[in-house]
Write a protein that binds this DNA or RNA. Structure first.
Length: 425
RNA sequence: AGAGGAGUGGCAGAGUGGUCGAUUGCGGCGGUCUUGAAAACCGUUGAACCGCGAGGUUCCGGGGGUUCGAAUCCCUCCUCCUCUGCCA
C-alpha cells in the first residue's frame, strides 16, 4: 500500500498519477487519508501523555513500596484508575482510526511511474519495441496449436478434465518433456544471470497474500484450501517476495535476486471467452519467475535489466516478440510500471502475453515491512520487482505453431540439450 | 497425532513482578597503537511511532488477560527441538 508520508510529501503528483488509472476523484480520497492520519497522530499524542503519567505513578509506587511507605503508595494507586480508563479508551479509538486508515489505503492502487500514459484498456498500451519478423505459414501447415497437440498427442485436455476439470491439461510424452526442458532452460539462464534458485511452497497463508497485494481485492482469483485457510499461489511472486517479509537488510546485501519454478493456479473467474482455446488460458500452468529486491535508486535500471533478460530468452527460442509499456488503465493494482512481453503466434495470428515485468517500488515492501539500512544508516523501504521468465503454455503454443512444417515441429536449437529430441512428429 | 522442552537485540546467551530496552560475549562501526595489517586496548552499536526540539510511547514468538507496575504470572495460538506413533 501507499505510504502516507509519500502522499503528504507530494499530494499533487499522487493525484496526477492516480488519475492515469482513471480514478474519479483521487483528491478526496487522499485528503481523507491525510485527515485520518492526522487524527491518528493526535490520539497517539494524547494516549502517550496519559500513559507517561501512569508510568510515572507506577514508578513512584515502586519507590514507596521499597521504602515501606505503603499508605502513600495506596493513595497514588487510587489516582491511577482514571488514567488507566482514559488510556484504554484512547487505545480503542486509536485502533479504530488506524484500522479505517489501513482499509482505505488497501483500496488505493500504486501511483504509476511518470512514464506511464493514461489509458482505458490494453488498446492504449504503448509498444516500445518489436523484435523478429513475423513468420508467414503456408496454407497447408497453419494449424493452431490446439490442433497440433491433438495431431501429435502431446497435450490432452479431455484427460485433464476427467481428472480435475477444464483448464487442467495433461502433458504427455514429448509434450511433458518439452515442459521439463523449458523449465530447466529458463532456470539455468536465470542462474547464469545471477539469480539464486529457490523452491518455495505453493500454498500461502493469508498474511502473505496481503503483503504482496493479492488480498484483499483478488481472493476470487485464487483457489482456497478452506480447511487450513491457505491459498494456492497464482504466481511464485507471492511466496518468493514473502521470503523477505519483516526483514531488515543491509545495503550491501542488495540486490537480492531469486528465481523459482512453480506451478501457478488461477480460477480465472469470468474471463473465459473466444480467445482462450487450447493453451491460451489455463487454471493450472507452469512458470519460472524472477524476483529482485533492490535499492530504490536502482530499481528502474533493474527493471530494464529484467526486461532484457526475458527478451534474451525469447530471442534464443527464436520467437518474434514485442514489448509493451502498459497504460494506467491496464496496469495491475500494485505496480508502478509494467512491461508486457508478447510473442507472435503464427497460426492464431495473435500476440500472446508470455511475461509481465513490473516494478512495485515501495507498494509491496510497505506491507511486507521489507526494509534496508542505507549508506548513512537510515532505514528505508526497499523496492520489489518481479517478472515471468517465462510462463510456459503460451511459449509452447507459439513454438508449436511457428515451427510447424510437413516434417513435424522443429525444436529450437537451444533446447536440444534439454530435450533429447529435435522433432515432434 | 501424543508426551516433554524451548522461543530474548545481527548471532550466542543471562535475566522469574518495580529505573530492564534489557548483564555479558561474538560480530559490526569509530578510534589509539602500527610503514600497513593482525593482535591488544578504548569507545560505540536494535526497531517502530509521535514531537521543531527537549523528550515521550510501544516492542523480549503472535494475540488476549491479571497488576499501580510484566521479558518475568495466567489463557490462547504459532514455530522449533527431543522422544513415541504414522507416512511420501
Amino acid at each position: 500500500m501507499l505510504q502516507v508520508n509519500q502522499i503528504r510529501a507530494d499530494f499533487d503528483q499522487a493525484c496526477i498519477g492516480l488519475k492515469k488509472r482513471n480514478l474519479e476523484n483521487p483528491e478526496d480520497l487522499l485528503r481523507q487519508v491525510l485527515l485520518l492520519d492526522d487524527q491518528r497522530k493526535k490520539i497517539q499524542m494524547d494516549r502517550d501523555n496519559f500513559q507517561a503519567e501512569s508510568n510515572n505513578m507506577a514508578r513512584e509506587i515502586g519507590q514507596l513500596m521499597r521504602t515501606g511507605k505503603k499508605d502513600e503508595a495506596e493513595k497514588i494507586k487510587e489516582k491511577t484508575a482514571s488514567l488507566k480508563s482514559k488510556v484504554k479508551l484512547l487505545e480503542e479509538e486509536y485502533n479504530e482510526v488506524e484500522n479505517t486508515l489501513t482499509q482505505l489505503l488497501y483500496t488505493i492502487p500504486n501511483i504509476p511511474h511518470h512514464s506511464v500514459k493514461p489509458g482505458n484498456s490494453a488498446e492504449d498500451n504503448e509498444e516500445v519495441l518489436q523484435h523478429g519478423s513475423l513468420p508467414v505459414l503456408d496454407h497447408k501447415h497453419k494449424l493452431p496449436h490446439w490442433d497440433l497437440i491433438k495431431k501429435y498427442d502431446i497435450v490432452d485436455f479431455e484427460l485433464g478434465a476427467k481428472i480435475t476439470g477444464a483448464g487442467f491439461p495433461v502433458y504427455k510424452g514429448k509434450g511433458a518433456k518439452l515442459q521439463r526442458g523449458l523449465i530447466n532452460f529458463f532456470l539455468e539462464e536465470a542462474e547464469k544471470a545471477g539469480y539464486e534458485e529457490v523452491q518455495p511452497p505453493i500454498l500461502i497463508n493469508e498474511e502473505s497474500g496481503y503483503a504482496t497485494g493479492q488480498l484483499p481485492d483478488k481472493e476470487g482469483q485464487m483457489y482456497l484450501a478452506a480447511e487450513d485457510g491457505l491459498y494456492l499461489i497464482p504466481t511464485a511472486e507471492v511466496p518468493i517476495t514473502n521470503m523477505y517479509r519483516n526483514e531488515l537488510l543491509s545495503a550491501a546485501e542488495l540486490p537480492k535476486k531469486n528465481v523459482g519454478y512453480t506451478p501457478c493456479f488461477r480460477r480465472e473467474a469470468g474471463s473465459w471467452g473466444a480467445h482462450v482455446r487450447g493453451l491460451n488460458r489455463l487454471h493450472q500452468f507452469d512458470k519460472v519467475e524472477i524476483v529482485q529486491i533492490t535499492h530504490p535508486e536502482h530499481s528502474y535500471q533493474t527493471l530494464d535489466t529484467m526486461s532484457l533478460h526475458v527478451q534474451g530468452l525469447l530471442q534464443k527460442l527464436g520467437l518474434p516478440f514485442r514489448v509493451l509499456r502498459l497504460c494506467g488503465g491496464d496496469m495491475g493494482f500494485t505496480a508502478a510500471l509494467t512491461y508486457d512481453l508478447e510473442v507472435f503466434s503464427a497460426a492464431q495470428e495473435r500476440w500472446l502475453e508470455v511475461s509481465s515485468v513490473s516494478n512495485f517500488e515501495t507498494y509491496q515492501s510497505n506491507r511486507l515491512k521489507l526494509r534496508f539500512k542505507n549508506e548513512s544508516k537510515k532505514t528505508l523501504l526497499a523496492h520489489t520487482l518481479n517478472g515471468s521468465a517465462l510462463a510456459l503454455p503460451r511459449i509452447i503454443a507459439a513454438l508449436l505453431e511457428n515451427n510447424q512444417s510437413e516434417k513435424g515441429i522443429r525444436m529450437p536449437e537451444v533446447l536440444l540439450p534439454y530435450l533429447g529430441f529435435e522433432w515432434i512428429s
